[in-house]
Design a protein around this nucleic acid. Structure first.
Lengths: 246, 246
DNA sequence: AGCTCATGTGAACGACTTTTACATGAGCTG
DNA sequence: CAGCTCATGTAAAAGTCGTTCACATGAGCT
Protein backbone atom coordinates (compact mmCIF):
# COMPACT_ATOMS: atom_id res chain seq x y z
CA UNK A 1 0.00 0.00 0.00
CA UNK A 2 2.85 2.36 -0.43
CA UNK A 3 2.80 2.31 -4.20
CA UNK A 4 1.06 5.66 -3.96
CA UNK A 5 4.20 7.31 -2.78
CA UNK A 6 6.31 5.45 -5.31
CA UNK A 7 3.85 6.48 -7.96
CA UNK A 8 4.15 10.06 -6.99
CA UNK A 9 7.86 9.91 -6.93
CA UNK A 10 7.80 8.36 -10.38
CA UNK A 11 5.65 11.21 -11.59
CA UNK A 12 7.83 13.96 -10.32
CA UNK A 13 11.25 12.44 -9.66
CA UNK A 14 13.25 12.54 -6.50
CA UNK A 15 13.22 16.29 -6.38
CA UNK A 16 9.95 18.08 -6.24
CA UNK A 17 11.12 21.15 -8.06
CA UNK A 18 8.71 23.57 -6.48
CA UNK A 19 8.20 22.32 -2.97
CA UNK A 20 8.22 25.62 -1.17
CA UNK A 21 5.37 26.96 -3.20
CA UNK A 22 3.52 23.65 -3.06
CA UNK A 23 3.76 23.65 0.70
CA UNK A 24 2.43 27.17 0.94
CA UNK A 25 -0.51 26.28 -1.26
CA UNK A 26 -1.20 23.09 0.65
CA UNK A 27 -1.03 24.89 3.96
CA UNK A 28 -3.36 27.56 2.66
CA UNK A 29 -5.93 24.95 1.77
CA UNK A 30 -5.57 23.15 5.06
CA UNK A 31 -5.88 26.33 7.10
CA UNK A 32 -8.97 27.30 5.15
CA UNK A 33 -10.51 23.95 6.04
CA UNK A 34 -9.46 23.39 9.58
CA UNK A 35 -8.09 26.65 10.88
CA UNK A 36 -4.52 27.54 11.70
CA UNK A 37 -4.70 25.51 14.88
CA UNK A 38 -5.77 22.35 13.11
CA UNK A 39 -3.25 22.69 10.34
CA UNK A 40 -0.44 20.24 10.41
CA UNK A 41 3.04 20.40 8.99
CA UNK A 42 2.96 16.70 8.23
CA UNK A 43 -0.31 17.07 6.38
CA UNK A 44 1.08 19.74 4.16
CA UNK A 45 4.05 17.53 3.37
CA UNK A 46 1.77 14.61 2.58
CA UNK A 47 -0.36 16.78 0.35
CA UNK A 48 2.72 17.85 -1.56
CA UNK A 49 3.76 14.23 -1.88
CA UNK A 50 6.98 14.46 0.10
CA UNK A 51 8.23 13.03 3.35
CA UNK A 52 7.55 14.72 6.65
CA UNK A 53 11.11 15.92 6.90
CA UNK A 54 11.25 17.62 3.52
CA UNK A 55 9.53 20.84 4.57
CA UNK A 56 12.43 21.56 6.91
CA UNK A 57 14.57 22.30 3.89
CA UNK A 58 12.35 25.30 3.20
CA UNK A 59 11.02 26.44 6.56
CA UNK A 60 12.79 26.47 9.90
CA UNK A 61 9.69 25.06 11.51
CA UNK A 62 5.92 25.04 11.37
CA UNK A 63 5.72 28.58 12.67
CA UNK A 64 7.84 29.91 9.88
CA UNK A 65 5.49 28.45 7.33
CA UNK A 66 2.61 30.08 9.14
CA UNK A 67 4.47 33.37 9.22
CA UNK A 68 5.15 33.17 5.51
CA UNK A 69 1.48 32.75 4.88
CA UNK A 70 0.58 35.63 7.15
CA UNK A 71 3.16 37.76 5.39
CA UNK A 72 1.76 36.93 2.00
CA UNK A 73 -1.67 37.59 3.41
CA UNK A 74 -0.75 41.06 4.55
CA UNK A 75 0.63 41.80 1.13
CA UNK A 76 -2.52 40.73 -0.65
CA UNK A 77 -4.53 42.54 1.96
CA UNK A 78 -2.61 45.70 1.31
CA UNK A 79 -3.08 45.47 -2.40
CA UNK A 80 -6.80 44.88 -2.06
CA UNK A 81 -7.20 47.80 0.28
CA UNK A 82 -5.17 49.96 -2.05
CA UNK A 83 -7.35 49.01 -4.97
CA UNK A 84 -10.48 49.67 -2.95
CA UNK A 85 -9.27 53.05 -1.80
CA UNK A 86 -8.38 53.95 -5.38
CA UNK A 87 -6.84 57.13 -4.13
CA UNK A 88 -10.15 58.43 -2.90
CA UNK A 89 -12.08 58.27 -6.12
CA UNK A 90 -14.77 59.21 -6.94
CA UNK A 91 -15.12 60.89 -3.59
CA UNK A 92 -13.51 60.37 -0.25
CA UNK A 93 -16.49 59.00 1.65
CA UNK A 94 -17.45 56.54 -1.05
CA UNK A 95 -13.91 55.30 -1.34
CA UNK A 96 -13.64 55.08 2.39
CA UNK A 97 -16.61 52.79 2.62
CA UNK A 98 -15.31 50.72 -0.23
CA UNK A 99 -12.23 50.11 1.88
CA UNK A 100 -14.45 48.81 4.65
CA UNK A 101 -16.18 46.46 2.30
CA UNK A 102 -12.86 45.31 0.94
CA UNK A 103 -11.79 44.46 4.48
CA UNK A 104 -14.81 42.25 4.94
CA UNK A 105 -14.50 40.76 1.51
CA UNK A 106 -10.95 39.77 2.24
CA UNK A 107 -11.93 38.15 5.51
CA UNK A 108 -14.68 36.26 3.75
CA UNK A 109 -12.89 35.28 0.58
CA UNK A 110 -9.49 34.54 2.03
CA UNK A 111 -10.27 32.87 5.32
CA UNK A 112 -6.93 31.11 5.38
CA UNK A 113 -4.95 34.31 5.05
CA UNK A 114 -7.16 36.12 7.49
CA UNK A 115 -6.81 33.30 9.95
CA UNK A 116 -3.04 33.23 9.69
CA UNK A 117 -2.86 37.00 9.94
CA UNK A 118 -5.20 37.68 12.82
CA UNK A 119 -6.27 34.49 14.52
CA UNK A 120 -3.31 32.18 14.55
CA UNK A 121 -1.76 33.62 17.68
CA UNK A 122 1.45 34.40 15.81
CA UNK A 123 3.59 36.95 17.64
CA UNK A 124 3.39 39.60 14.95
CA UNK A 125 5.85 41.84 16.68
CA UNK A 126 8.45 39.09 16.87
CA UNK A 127 8.90 39.06 13.12
CA UNK A 128 10.02 42.39 11.71
CA UNK A 129 9.10 41.57 8.15
CA UNK A 130 5.67 40.52 9.24
CA UNK A 131 5.21 43.59 11.34
CA UNK A 132 6.29 45.79 8.46
CA UNK A 133 3.84 44.11 6.11
CA UNK A 134 1.08 44.53 8.64
CA UNK A 135 1.95 48.16 9.05
CA UNK A 136 1.93 48.76 5.33
CA UNK A 137 -1.59 47.40 5.14
CA UNK A 138 -2.71 49.56 8.02
CA UNK A 139 -1.16 52.57 6.40
CA UNK A 140 -3.68 52.37 3.61
CA UNK A 141 -6.42 52.87 6.13
CA UNK A 142 -4.42 55.60 7.76
CA UNK A 143 -3.85 57.44 4.52
CA UNK A 144 -7.53 57.24 3.76
CA UNK A 145 -8.35 58.55 7.21
CA UNK A 146 -5.98 61.41 6.68
CA UNK A 147 -7.70 62.46 3.52
CA UNK A 148 -11.01 62.18 5.23
CA UNK A 149 -9.88 64.17 8.23
CA UNK A 150 -8.73 66.94 5.96
CA UNK A 151 -12.32 67.28 4.79
CA UNK A 152 -13.63 67.79 8.28
CA UNK A 153 -16.36 70.36 8.20
CA UNK A 154 -15.00 73.76 9.02
CA UNK A 155 -15.82 75.08 12.44
CA UNK A 156 -15.54 71.74 14.20
CA UNK A 157 -12.19 70.63 15.59
CA UNK A 158 -10.38 68.34 13.18
CA UNK A 159 -10.27 64.72 14.38
CA UNK A 160 -6.84 63.09 14.56
CA UNK A 161 -6.49 60.91 11.48
CA UNK A 162 -4.60 58.24 13.38
CA UNK A 163 -7.45 57.86 15.78
CA UNK A 164 -9.97 57.65 12.98
CA UNK A 165 -7.91 55.01 11.29
CA UNK A 166 -7.73 52.95 14.45
CA UNK A 167 -11.46 53.32 14.93
CA UNK A 168 -12.24 52.19 11.44
CA UNK A 169 -9.83 49.32 11.74
CA UNK A 170 -11.38 48.14 14.97
CA UNK A 171 -14.88 48.30 13.52
CA UNK A 172 -13.88 46.38 10.44
CA UNK A 173 -11.97 43.81 12.39
CA UNK A 174 -14.73 43.45 14.93
CA UNK A 175 -17.40 42.86 12.34
CA UNK A 176 -15.18 40.54 10.36
CA UNK A 177 -14.17 38.46 13.37
CA UNK A 178 -17.57 38.21 14.91
CA UNK A 179 -19.93 37.98 12.00
CA UNK A 180 -18.25 37.52 8.71
CA UNK A 181 -16.09 34.42 8.79
CA UNK A 182 -16.50 31.50 6.38
CA UNK A 183 -18.44 28.62 7.87
CA UNK A 184 -18.51 30.67 11.03
CA UNK A 185 -21.03 33.36 10.22
CA UNK A 186 -22.28 32.14 13.52
CA UNK A 187 -24.89 34.53 14.81
CA UNK A 188 -28.11 35.28 13.07
CA UNK A 189 -28.11 38.90 12.10
CA UNK A 190 -30.83 41.32 11.15
CA UNK A 191 -28.57 42.51 8.35
CA UNK A 192 -25.56 41.37 6.39
CA UNK A 193 -22.10 42.02 7.79
CA UNK A 194 -21.48 44.44 4.95
CA UNK A 195 -24.57 46.44 5.71
CA UNK A 196 -23.75 46.31 9.37
CA UNK A 197 -20.29 47.72 8.85
CA UNK A 198 -21.41 50.28 6.36
CA UNK A 199 -24.03 51.64 8.74
CA UNK A 200 -21.52 51.62 11.56
CA UNK A 201 -18.99 53.62 9.61
CA UNK A 202 -21.58 56.06 8.36
CA UNK A 203 -22.92 56.72 11.82
CA UNK A 204 -19.38 57.15 13.05
CA UNK A 205 -18.54 59.63 10.31
CA UNK A 206 -21.69 61.52 10.98
CA UNK A 207 -20.64 61.66 14.61
CA UNK A 208 -17.51 63.40 13.45
CA UNK A 209 -19.58 65.95 11.64
CA UNK A 210 -19.16 64.58 8.15
CA UNK A 211 -22.11 64.81 5.86
CA UNK A 212 -22.93 61.22 5.08
CA UNK A 213 -25.11 61.75 2.10
CA UNK A 214 -22.05 61.86 -0.09
CA UNK A 215 -22.28 65.59 -0.53
CA UNK A 216 -19.16 67.05 1.03
CA UNK A 217 -19.60 70.27 2.92
CA UNK A 218 -16.25 71.76 2.00
CA UNK A 219 -16.01 73.23 -1.46
CA UNK A 220 -13.18 72.91 -3.89
CA UNK A 221 -11.14 70.49 -1.80
CA UNK A 222 -13.23 67.64 -3.08
CA UNK A 223 -14.01 66.56 -6.63
CA UNK A 224 -17.63 67.04 -7.59
CA UNK A 225 -19.82 64.38 -6.01
CA UNK A 226 -21.29 61.55 -7.98
CA UNK A 227 -24.78 62.35 -9.16
CA UNK A 228 -27.26 60.71 -6.78
CA UNK A 229 -28.58 58.20 -9.28
CA UNK A 230 -25.08 56.86 -9.86
CA UNK A 231 -24.44 55.87 -6.25
CA UNK A 232 -26.60 52.81 -6.65
CA UNK A 233 -27.71 50.94 -3.58
CA UNK A 234 -24.97 52.03 -1.28
CA UNK A 235 -26.24 55.54 -0.92
CA UNK A 236 -27.60 56.60 2.41
CA UNK A 237 -31.36 56.43 2.62
CA UNK A 238 -32.91 59.70 3.73
CA UNK A 239 -33.92 58.45 7.13
CA UNK A 240 -30.46 57.45 8.21
CA UNK A 241 -27.81 54.80 7.61
CA UNK A 242 -30.08 51.89 8.46
CA UNK A 243 -33.24 50.30 7.15
CA UNK A 244 -36.67 51.40 8.20
CA UNK A 245 -36.89 51.42 11.99
CA UNK A 246 -40.17 49.78 12.90
CA UNK B 1 13.29 9.49 40.37
CA UNK B 2 9.61 9.29 40.22
CA UNK B 3 9.15 9.82 43.92
CA UNK B 4 7.51 13.09 43.04
CA UNK B 5 4.47 11.35 41.71
CA UNK B 6 4.48 8.97 44.66
CA UNK B 7 4.83 11.94 46.95
CA UNK B 8 1.85 13.57 45.41
CA UNK B 9 -0.17 10.44 45.59
CA UNK B 10 0.76 10.08 49.24
CA UNK B 11 -0.38 13.62 49.87
CA UNK B 12 -3.74 13.23 48.30
CA UNK B 13 -4.42 9.50 48.09
CA UNK B 14 -5.35 7.50 45.07
CA UNK B 15 -8.36 9.65 44.37
CA UNK B 16 -7.88 13.29 43.75
CA UNK B 17 -11.20 14.37 45.15
CA UNK B 18 -11.59 17.47 43.07
CA UNK B 19 -9.94 16.71 39.81
CA UNK B 20 -12.44 18.33 37.50
CA UNK B 21 -12.06 21.69 39.18
CA UNK B 22 -8.30 21.28 39.44
CA UNK B 23 -8.09 20.60 35.73
CA UNK B 24 -10.15 23.65 34.89
CA UNK B 25 -7.92 25.83 37.01
CA UNK B 26 -4.76 24.33 35.59
CA UNK B 27 -6.01 24.77 32.06
CA UNK B 28 -6.94 28.34 32.79
CA UNK B 29 -3.43 29.07 33.93
CA UNK B 30 -1.87 27.32 30.98
CA UNK B 31 -4.06 29.10 28.46
CA UNK B 32 -3.25 32.43 30.05
CA UNK B 33 0.43 31.64 29.61
CA UNK B 34 0.60 29.98 26.27
CA UNK B 35 -2.71 30.56 24.56
CA UNK B 36 -5.44 28.09 23.80
CA UNK B 37 -3.41 26.67 20.96
CA UNK B 38 -0.40 25.92 23.10
CA UNK B 39 -2.39 24.48 25.93
CA UNK B 40 -2.03 20.77 26.41
CA UNK B 41 -4.31 18.23 28.01
CA UNK B 42 -1.35 16.32 29.31
CA UNK B 43 0.11 19.41 30.90
CA UNK B 44 -3.06 20.10 32.78
CA UNK B 45 -3.09 16.54 34.07
CA UNK B 46 0.52 16.83 35.15
CA UNK B 47 -0.19 20.07 36.91
CA UNK B 48 -3.01 18.44 38.80
CA UNK B 49 -0.72 15.56 39.71
CA UNK B 50 -2.58 12.81 37.90
CA UNK B 51 -1.84 10.58 34.94
CA UNK B 52 -2.51 11.69 31.41
CA UNK B 53 -5.54 9.46 31.14
CA UNK B 54 -7.31 10.72 34.25
CA UNK B 55 -8.83 13.81 32.64
CA UNK B 56 -10.85 11.60 30.36
CA UNK B 57 -12.99 10.65 33.35
CA UNK B 58 -14.19 14.24 33.46
CA UNK B 59 -14.03 15.53 29.90
CA UNK B 60 -14.79 13.67 26.70
CA UNK B 61 -11.68 15.18 25.17
CA UNK B 62 -9.50 18.24 25.08
CA UNK B 63 -12.12 20.23 23.26
CA UNK B 64 -14.69 19.64 25.94
CA UNK B 65 -12.36 21.05 28.54
CA UNK B 66 -11.86 24.07 26.34
CA UNK B 67 -15.59 24.42 25.89
CA UNK B 68 -16.15 24.25 29.62
CA UNK B 69 -13.74 27.07 30.09
CA UNK B 70 -15.35 29.13 27.37
CA UNK B 71 -18.72 28.48 28.96
CA UNK B 72 -17.52 29.60 32.33
CA UNK B 73 -15.93 32.58 30.64
CA UNK B 74 -19.19 33.66 29.07
CA UNK B 75 -20.87 33.40 32.43
CA UNK B 76 -18.31 35.58 34.15
CA UNK B 77 -18.39 37.91 31.19
CA UNK B 78 -22.13 38.21 31.49
CA UNK B 79 -21.96 38.96 35.17
CA UNK B 80 -19.29 41.59 34.70
CA UNK B 81 -21.21 43.28 31.95
CA UNK B 82 -24.33 43.15 34.08
CA UNK B 83 -22.52 44.77 36.96
CA UNK B 84 -21.07 47.42 34.68
CA UNK B 85 -24.42 48.21 33.15
CA UNK B 86 -25.95 48.47 36.63
CA UNK B 87 -29.32 48.85 35.06
CA UNK B 88 -28.36 52.11 33.45
CA UNK B 89 -27.35 54.03 36.56
CA UNK B 90 -26.60 56.82 37.05
CA UNK B 91 -27.51 57.65 33.50
CA UNK B 92 -27.78 55.62 30.37
CA UNK B 93 -24.83 57.02 28.47
CA UNK B 94 -22.46 56.76 31.43
CA UNK B 95 -23.53 53.21 32.11
CA UNK B 96 -23.23 52.36 28.46
CA UNK B 97 -19.65 53.45 28.35
CA UNK B 98 -18.93 51.58 31.53
CA UNK B 99 -20.05 48.46 29.71
CA UNK B 100 -17.53 49.16 27.00
CA UNK B 101 -14.77 49.57 29.54
CA UNK B 102 -15.88 46.37 31.26
CA UNK B 103 -15.54 44.57 27.96
CA UNK B 104 -11.95 45.71 27.61
CA UNK B 105 -11.19 45.06 31.24
CA UNK B 106 -12.40 41.50 30.89
CA UNK B 107 -10.28 40.94 27.82
CA UNK B 108 -7.27 42.32 29.65
CA UNK B 109 -7.76 40.76 33.05
CA UNK B 110 -9.03 37.39 31.95
CA UNK B 111 -6.96 36.61 28.90
CA UNK B 112 -7.48 32.89 29.33
CA UNK B 113 -11.24 33.15 29.30
CA UNK B 114 -11.20 35.65 26.48
CA UNK B 115 -8.93 33.42 24.49
CA UNK B 116 -11.09 30.36 24.99
CA UNK B 117 -14.22 32.33 24.19
CA UNK B 118 -13.16 34.22 21.12
CA UNK B 119 -9.83 33.05 19.85
CA UNK B 120 -9.65 29.33 20.32
CA UNK B 121 -11.46 28.49 17.12
CA UNK B 122 -14.11 26.58 19.04
CA UNK B 123 -17.24 26.07 16.98
CA UNK B 124 -19.51 28.07 19.25
CA UNK B 125 -22.61 27.12 17.37
CA UNK B 126 -21.89 23.42 17.72
CA UNK B 127 -22.43 23.52 21.46
CA UNK B 128 -25.93 24.70 22.42
CA UNK B 129 -25.03 25.44 26.03
CA UNK B 130 -22.09 27.50 24.90
CA UNK B 131 -24.12 29.34 22.34
CA UNK B 132 -26.77 30.10 24.94
CA UNK B 133 -24.18 31.43 27.36
CA UNK B 134 -22.72 33.58 24.64
CA UNK B 135 -26.14 34.88 23.78
CA UNK B 136 -26.91 35.73 27.38
CA UNK B 137 -23.78 37.83 27.54
CA UNK B 138 -24.66 39.60 24.33
CA UNK B 139 -28.13 40.25 25.61
CA UNK B 140 -26.72 42.56 28.24
CA UNK B 141 -25.34 44.74 25.51
CA UNK B 142 -28.58 44.44 23.66
CA UNK B 143 -30.67 45.46 26.65
CA UNK B 144 -28.43 48.44 27.21
CA UNK B 145 -28.75 49.40 23.57
CA UNK B 146 -32.49 49.15 23.86
CA UNK B 147 -32.58 51.58 26.72
CA UNK B 148 -30.30 53.89 24.87
CA UNK B 149 -32.34 53.71 21.69
CA UNK B 150 -35.42 54.65 23.63
CA UNK B 151 -33.70 57.89 24.52
CA UNK B 152 -33.07 58.79 20.92
CA UNK B 153 -33.57 62.49 20.48
CA UNK B 154 -37.07 63.24 19.28
CA UNK B 155 -37.40 64.22 15.68
CA UNK B 156 -34.77 61.83 14.39
CA UNK B 157 -35.75 58.30 13.41
CA UNK B 158 -35.10 55.84 16.21
CA UNK B 159 -32.13 53.54 15.53
CA UNK B 160 -32.79 49.80 15.79
CA UNK B 161 -31.46 48.67 19.15
CA UNK B 162 -30.24 45.37 17.78
CA UNK B 163 -28.10 47.14 15.24
CA UNK B 164 -26.68 49.44 17.88
CA UNK B 165 -25.84 46.47 20.04
CA UNK B 166 -24.04 44.75 17.21
CA UNK B 167 -22.15 47.91 16.44
CA UNK B 168 -21.04 48.36 20.01
CA UNK B 169 -20.08 44.75 20.25
CA UNK B 170 -18.00 44.91 17.12
CA UNK B 171 -16.20 48.04 18.29
CA UNK B 172 -15.44 46.54 21.66
CA UNK B 173 -14.33 43.27 20.22
CA UNK B 174 -12.27 44.95 17.56
CA UNK B 175 -10.41 47.14 20.01
CA UNK B 176 -9.95 44.28 22.45
CA UNK B 177 -8.65 41.87 19.82
CA UNK B 178 -6.36 44.27 18.08
CA UNK B 179 -5.00 46.46 20.83
CA UNK B 180 -5.82 45.27 24.26
CA UNK B 181 -4.55 41.75 24.74
CA UNK B 182 -2.03 40.79 27.43
CA UNK B 183 1.47 40.54 26.12
CA UNK B 184 0.03 41.30 22.75
CA UNK B 185 -0.77 44.98 23.01
CA UNK B 186 1.21 44.84 19.85
CA UNK B 187 0.85 48.15 18.10
CA UNK B 188 2.00 51.42 19.47
CA UNK B 189 -0.99 53.60 20.01
CA UNK B 190 -1.44 57.32 20.44
CA UNK B 191 -3.90 56.54 23.23
CA UNK B 192 -4.87 53.70 25.54
CA UNK B 193 -7.30 51.08 24.29
CA UNK B 194 -9.82 52.33 26.83
CA UNK B 195 -9.61 55.86 25.59
CA UNK B 196 -9.71 54.65 22.04
CA UNK B 197 -12.90 52.71 22.61
CA UNK B 198 -14.50 55.42 24.65
CA UNK B 199 -13.91 57.99 21.94
CA UNK B 200 -15.15 55.58 19.32
CA UNK B 201 -18.38 54.92 21.15
CA UNK B 202 -18.94 58.58 21.89
CA UNK B 203 -18.47 59.57 18.29
CA UNK B 204 -20.78 56.79 17.25
CA UNK B 205 -23.47 57.87 19.69
CA UNK B 206 -23.14 61.41 18.57
CA UNK B 207 -23.62 60.16 15.03
CA UNK B 208 -26.92 58.78 16.16
CA UNK B 209 -27.89 62.15 17.48
CA UNK B 210 -27.26 61.49 21.13
CA UNK B 211 -25.89 64.31 23.18
CA UNK B 212 -22.55 63.04 24.36
CA UNK B 213 -21.87 65.52 27.07
CA UNK B 214 -23.84 63.37 29.50
CA UNK B 215 -26.77 65.78 29.50
CA UNK B 216 -29.69 63.87 28.07
CA UNK B 217 -31.84 65.79 25.65
CA UNK B 218 -35.10 64.13 26.58
CA UNK B 219 -36.61 65.24 29.85
CA UNK B 220 -38.22 63.11 32.50
CA UNK B 221 -37.37 59.81 30.82
CA UNK B 222 -33.89 59.97 32.29
CA UNK B 223 -32.74 60.48 35.87
CA UNK B 224 -30.99 63.77 36.50
CA UNK B 225 -27.45 63.70 35.18
CA UNK B 226 -24.43 63.44 37.39
CA UNK B 227 -23.11 66.87 38.33
CA UNK B 228 -20.18 67.67 36.01
CA UNK B 229 -17.53 67.64 38.70
CA UNK B 230 -18.52 64.08 39.64
CA UNK B 231 -17.87 62.52 36.25
CA UNK B 232 -14.16 62.63 36.82
CA UNK B 233 -11.86 62.12 33.91
CA UNK B 234 -14.26 60.25 31.69
CA UNK B 235 -16.32 63.26 30.83
CA UNK B 236 -16.22 64.54 27.33
CA UNK B 237 -13.88 67.46 26.87
CA UNK B 238 -15.55 70.44 25.25
CA UNK B 239 -13.77 70.10 21.95
CA UNK B 240 -14.91 66.57 21.27
CA UNK B 241 -14.33 62.98 22.36
CA UNK B 242 -10.62 63.06 21.70
CA UNK B 243 -7.57 64.88 22.97
CA UNK B 244 -6.39 68.14 21.58
CA UNK B 245 -6.02 67.93 17.84
CA UNK B 246 -2.76 69.57 16.98
C1' DA C 1 32.89 12.97 -16.52
C1' DG C 2 33.02 14.24 -12.06
C1' DC C 3 32.03 17.30 -8.08
C1' DT C 4 29.17 19.69 -5.08
C1' DC C 5 25.42 21.20 -2.74
C1' DA C 6 20.58 21.93 -2.50
C1' DT C 7 16.95 19.02 -1.79
C1' DG C 8 14.61 14.84 -0.42
C1' DT C 9 14.40 10.17 2.47
C1' DG C 10 13.91 7.05 6.43
C1' DA C 11 14.60 6.18 11.02
C1' DA C 12 14.40 7.68 15.49
C1' DC C 13 13.07 10.56 19.75
C1' DG C 14 10.00 12.64 22.78
C1' DA C 15 5.52 14.69 23.45
C1' DC C 16 0.63 14.56 22.84
C1' DT C 17 -4.23 12.40 22.35
C1' DT C 18 -7.01 8.80 23.06
C1' DT C 19 -8.42 3.94 24.16
C1' DT C 20 -8.24 -0.21 26.88
C1' DA C 21 -7.77 -3.30 30.57
C1' DC C 22 -6.96 -3.20 35.22
C1' DA C 23 -6.57 -1.09 40.25
C1' DT C 24 -8.37 1.46 44.16
C1' DG C 25 -11.25 2.88 47.59
C1' DA C 26 -15.57 5.81 49.01
C1' DG C 27 -19.99 5.01 50.17
C1' DC C 28 -24.07 2.36 50.22
C1' DT C 29 -26.55 -1.98 51.74
C1' DG C 30 -27.59 -5.57 54.53
C1' DC D 1 -18.96 -4.16 60.20
C1' DA D 2 -18.43 -7.05 55.74
C1' DG D 3 -19.09 -6.94 51.08
C1' DC D 4 -20.34 -4.90 46.76
C1' DT D 5 -20.36 -1.53 43.29
C1' DC D 6 -19.07 2.04 40.64
C1' DA D 7 -16.84 6.41 40.07
C1' DT D 8 -12.32 7.58 39.62
C1' DG D 9 -7.52 6.71 38.97
C1' DT D 10 -3.31 4.03 36.60
C1' DA D 11 -0.26 1.90 33.21
C1' DA D 12 0.43 0.48 28.69
C1' DA D 13 -0.19 0.83 23.93
C1' DA D 14 -1.37 2.68 19.32
C1' DG D 15 -1.33 6.43 16.32
C1' DT D 16 0.00 11.28 15.19
C1' DC D 17 3.13 15.32 15.21
C1' DG D 18 7.26 18.07 15.28
C1' DT D 19 11.93 17.85 14.78
C1' DT D 20 16.66 16.09 14.04
C1' DC D 21 20.14 13.24 11.97
C1' DA D 22 22.74 10.54 8.82
C1' DC D 23 22.39 9.33 4.36
C1' DA D 24 20.69 9.36 -0.81
C1' DT D 25 19.86 11.68 -5.13
C1' DG D 26 20.52 14.28 -8.99
C1' DA D 27 20.72 19.25 -11.16
C1' DG D 28 23.96 22.24 -12.60
C1' DC D 29 28.56 23.78 -12.89
C1' DT D 30 33.51 22.97 -14.13
Amino acid sequence: MSWRKEQRRAERGYHHGNLKEALLQAALGLIAEKGAAGFTFADAARMAGVSAAAPYRHFRDRDELLSSIAQRGFEQFESRLTAAWDDGRPDTVTAFERVGRAYLAFAREEPAFYNAMFESGLPVDANPALQAASERAFNIIRAAAERLAALAPPGTPRPPAMMMALHIWSMSHGVASLFSRGDAARRKLPMSPDELLEAEVLIYLRGLGFPTDRRPAGKGAEPPPVPPEASSGSGVPPGGPWGKPK
